[in-house]
Design a protein around this nucleic acid. Structure first.
Lengths: 223, 223
DNA sequence: ACCTGAACACCGTTCAAGT
DNA sequence: ACCTGAACACCGTTCAAGT
């Protein structure tokens, strides 16, 4: 055919198809040729819309991060939050972490790429800006705010990267009592995948926020 | 040449060369042909020692996990620990988490594979068994012990997967004040990579342990 | 048992050619 | 501007052939 009158492809259509392929069959299943065939187009066509496969992956990653809710950090500056007492950062962090995890856990196969950091991706930079800004305006020293942003990302990406429960084979034969005396029930984990992972995330999130609140209280004591 | 008198390869040599390649050039650089050439051998030779590339990757992963120190959980059963008061689990967990992170952070490129869970890898199963067993013998209910094992893995793998600081481009031009009002100093993060990531890990680890200690205390209150 | 080269069905990317 | 087929240097894996 050569060039059609109205374009067959667009960045949006390509990104959507790529994400679907990654979700359904994993990161390794995303090849330019396979993706092109999914879009009923020849392999090299994609290069009219993205310079490289990496640039395409970057767009997919940023579309996922764009799903994270940042509204709890306030839109027009967080002055109101601080005026309200500055004590609302744990609630904001909790709501954000849940939305962050939900967005990532919906696409676990792309988390390893996303976890490399924001790079130059606008949605990822906006996220980092909102979290850091909110913490600083809540009274956290800048160095501590950086650390909190980092440790929250560690926890959220780690929890979205893979299911803990599903990592244990459902085959009871694996857990020989002589080798692993405490794993006699581990073959049942995979069956409770959802609740185990959700429970672990919530427990860790609350523990983390409690631990940080302890440190926040100490800020006022010795300034 | 065909078959030499003494074998050119061994599983150990192959695993070591593969890990070196992954560390130096990333997971994508590990191809069977490239690895074979690194070992001065032809591509298909590797299939005499591993059935597939995945089986080889599994062996690499388990060799990394084998570096994690588990001695703090006691060797001949943890009865002594419990007899000593059962209060030492936070110290054991802290020491283990540091060793776990150090082992993984030395090989960040393989963390995405490792984070999929233990599977049937013996060192990974031994690790899970030691942590869970220690928590249960310290008085944690089994369900909570599972969650703690999971959330600790979330945090450690997340922190070893990639540097938080290095994820922010060192180019100040990236952080336009109109778009990202709080990231004016973000270009300096990458230069302090080591201290930022170490500080975030330590802060998160201590906060997590404090939060868990709060919950452990509550176990005694309402049993 | 353990290595080889040849072969198969794949990759990402470039490029000249088409409209 | 946007698509195509052909081509290049790669992949993982199989297999018959060698010792």
């Amino acid at each position: 055919m050569a060039r059609p009158r109205t374009p067959l492809l667009s960045r949006e259509r390509i990104v959507a198809a790529a994400l679907r392929l990654i979700d359904d069959e994993g990161l390794d299943a995303l090849s330019t040729r396979r993706l092109a065939s999914e879009l009923s187009v020849s392999g090299p066509s994609l290069y009219n819309h993205f310079a490289t496969k990496d640039e395409l992956l970057d767009a997919v990653v940023d579309s996922v991060i764009g799903e994270v809710d940042l509204s709890m950090f306030g839109t027009a500056g967080a002055a109101g939050v601080v005026a309200a007492g500055g004590g609302s950062w744990p609630e904001a962090l909790r709501d954000w972490a849940r939305s962050y995890r939900a967005a990532l856990a919906a696409h676990p196969n792309i988390v390893p790429v996303l976890a490399q950091g924001p790079g130059r991706r606008p949605n990822a930079l906006r996220l980092a800006d909102a979290v850091f800004g909110h913490l600083v305006e809540s009274g956290w020293p800048r160095g501590q705010a950086t650390r909190i942003g980092a440790l929250m990302r560690y926890f959220v990406t780690g929890s979205a990267l893979a299911s803990f429960a599903a990592g244990f084979p459902a085959d009871a034969e694996v857990y020989d009592a002589a080798d692993y005396p405490h794993l006699g029930e581990a073959h049942r984990l995979a069956g409770h995948r959802g609740t185990v992972d959700e429970g672990a995330f919530e427990t860790g999130l609350e523990a983390l926020l409690d631990g940080l609140a302890l440190r926040y209280a100490r800020l006022a004591e010795r300034p």
